[in-house]
Design a protein around this nucleic acid. Structure first.
Lengths: 259, 259
DNA sequence: CGTACCTTTGATAGAGTTCAAGAACGGTGG
DNA sequence: CCACCGTTCTTGAACTCTATCAAAGGTACG
């Protein structure tokens, strides 16, 4: 059983700190982090930048129940967010990569509904709540929110209608897309998260994740070697998961042009 | 099989119309529709109001694939939204009651990802895209979006971790809360949607919905007579679904005070 | 009043979970 | 460098939950 202690309403202890004003204009993930329109004007960028924060592996960015203080733009590293139901069961509700904005689960109630943990050495930009008043920042956050709504709906769809194999295929395709949009290879990557985390995210047991990976491997769509996964036949992998053609296209239009 | 024809990129034909400027200040669902802070100033309200639109049962508010033109605030009636995956499978992704804002699935890509159908004679307020530029409107929509993110995350949790009986219990509890927040009885109501729609929404077959309703009935938690459902033992029903205590409280704080 | 749709309930089958044990990997210390 | 340990991954077998198939009531509505 996973054991992430839930300590509601406790101010998160600063994990590792590197505070001080910084600029987004030099950020490596600027393009991914900001809409192109904003990326042009440096003065807008600097409104976003406030402070950076380092988070070590397995350290907590914020806890479930802690008051909402700020959003975080992931600069480097990798996060995982979990939410819990009453009896201790909990689910991974998202993986967050450079360019993502994290913390929106606290917007609705002023209290975070999830706990966010670094699963790779990470650095984030802090966007304090007060800064959300700003017009340009708000527009930016607004965009992140619409994308989050879309992502959540896709997830509902996957959890509600897709079968284990399809969910996993969809997960891999999505992961591949995001990796590529960050400039990494899209057909050969390390999934940092454990089978347990993937399973939780997809509403499956970790054993099923293994089995379905095995099935996809046997079908010649991927190769699997522990955390390293290579996509051998992306088109066929796409055809496995029942992602809407229209939606997929729309998704791609958010990224750079298809190769 | 459900058969909602998917006609992408076709401008929706106006269903039933009652256009012309109207005012929110006289709207019966004003309290539910608008944050209290905004509800005070009538001039702000009038910025939101633009036109009304009547939608008859089984008529489409907007179609999947149609370009995003506006958001809709539900005044009266009841809607159901569905999204599809490639092979024709589709899922109910939401039920919308008076006070809800509908159409946010079109914000991300400028194209609607869902089709929204009236399941009860309905009337909506149209909020054209241009109007979203306005500060106050934006703030209002922002609130609706945060709530939508929260709702979607709850749904992911339910679909990912809860079992059939728990999902149904959670659904009933949530429905009960929303009914009460609209001023209806919370322990005796008509679910307008079919078992098929409920099942789709919860990722279950319609037969399972029936069976689980039967089980809850046999346990003395509810009574069921076709579409009419009475909640006999709300506390116990709550204990069945694994909703976080903290989250439930937070949820309630959005409504009027607990009786 | 009959037809079509929705709901309920039963029987069967299948997908995925759970339990269990072994294998592969990564880190640590001798 | 190697052996050891804990963790994570993989695979098998039995079981559970839910879907699917099927048929019989109900209800709504023309």
């Amino acid at each position: 059983m996973l054991s992430v202690a839930v300590v509601p309403y406790l101010p998160y202890r600063p994990t590792s700190v590197a505070h001080g004003r910084v600029s987004c204009s030099t950020c490596s993930v600027r393009r991914a982090c900001l809409p192109h329109s904003l990326a042009e004007s440096p003065d807008v960028l600097d409104k976003l930048a406030y402070a950076r924060k380092r988070v070590k592996v397995d350290d907590v960015l914020y806890r479930m129940g802690s008051p909402f203080e700020s959003l975080y733009a992931v600069r480097t590293g990798f996060f995982e967010s979990r939410t819990a139901v009453a009896d201790g069961r909990e689910q991974v509700t998202g993986f967050h990569m450079p360019g993502d904005i994290v913390g929106m689960d606290g917007l609705a109630n002023g209290v975070h509904a999830a706990v966010v943990i670094a699963i790779a050495e990470a650095e984030v930009c802090v966007i304090p709540r007060a800064r959300l008043e700003d017009q340009d920042v708000q527009r930016h956050v607004h965009g992140a929110m619409t994308r989050e709504i879309g992502r959540a709906h896709d997830m509902m769809l996957a959890l509600g209608t897709l079968r284990a194999e399809e969910r996993l295929a969809a997960f891999l395709v999505g992961f591949s897309q995001r990796m590529r949009s960050l400039g990494y290879a899209r057909d050969d990557f390390n999934v940092r998260m454990s089978r347990l985390a993937i399973g939780s995210y997809l509403g499956l047991s970790l054993e099923t994740v293994c089995r379905m990976l095995g099935r996809l491997r046997d079908a010649g769509l991927i190769t699997v070697k522990q955390k390293r996964i290579c996509i051998v036949d992306l088109p066929r992998l796409r055809s496995v998961c029942g992602i809407t053609e229209a939606r997929r296209k729309a998704d791609l239009s958010l990224r750079t042009r298809e190769a």
